[in-house]
């Protein structure tokens, strides 16, 4: 059997190194944020959709935002974390109200329209439209797991980033700035 210069067999080294490596990999996996789920759609074209607006039912299409940075936020009245990020979204979108190259769109996901409207009247209306995805089909097309989820779509129509959970303003501003730089 082959040995090292000190007479230690290679298989003995493997017995120590390999399990240590494997345990290390599994231990690293446990330290990672379980809410950070991989998105199959990052880097790919945002799925097309045509949904009615929450207030007036007017159809809004994904293609209406071609050539712009689109911040697409999935929300619902029954989602607790959506309340947490509500003010952040209003504040954030207000900063871009004069910028034609950045748009915000809400997707009211698996909710009742009357509940959603009540939520907006209680917590403040978004300064941008929301579309209704009552059955969650558009959510499934985007691979939505849980709410809230925010997708940042670049001017090229590709999903650049996906955020799970309540949105962080500074993080969102950085992503938008990066995407605006691409246009």
């Amino acid at each position: 059997m082959s040995t090292t210069s000190s007479g230690f067999a290679y298989w003995k080294i493997a017995c120590i190194v390999f399990p240590a490596l494997l345990i290390g990999v599994f231990a690293y996996g446990l330290t990672r944020d379980a809410s950070h789920l991989p998105s199959a759609l990052v880097g790919k074209q945002a799925p097309p959709f045509s949904l009615g607006e929450l207030h007036n039912g007017e159809p809004i299409k994904r293609s209406d935002y071609d050539g712009k940075v689109l911040v697409l936020n999935f929300w619902a009245s029954w989602c607790g974390a959506c309340r947490t990020e509500h003010d952040t979204l209003i504040k954030l979108s207000d900063q871009f109200k004069d910028n034609a190259d950045v748009s915000f769109l809400g997707v009211n996901y698996r909710d009742r329209s009357e509940q959603a409207l009540k939520f907006l009247s209680q917590h403040g209306a978004f300064p941008y439209p929301s579309v209704v995805d009552a059955k969650g089909r558009t959510g499934i097309d985007f691979g939505v797991y849980g709410l809230p989820e925010t997708y940042f779509v670049g001017p090229d129509g590709r999903i650049a980033y996906r955020h799970i959970g309540a949105l962080d303003e500074s993080k969102a501003l950085k992503i938008i700035a990066t995407l605006r730089g691409r246009s």
């Binding site: 017995c15 120590i16 390999f18 399990p19």
Partner: peptide, 20 residues
């Protein structure tokens, strides 16, 4: 592949280490 075969290799190496 690590998920599928990692535990098997871990068992083999653990057995070898025990024998040693």
């Amino acid at each position: 592949l690590l998920l599928w075969y990692g535990p098997l290799f871990l068992m083999i190496f653990a057995s070898l280490a025990l024998a040693w």
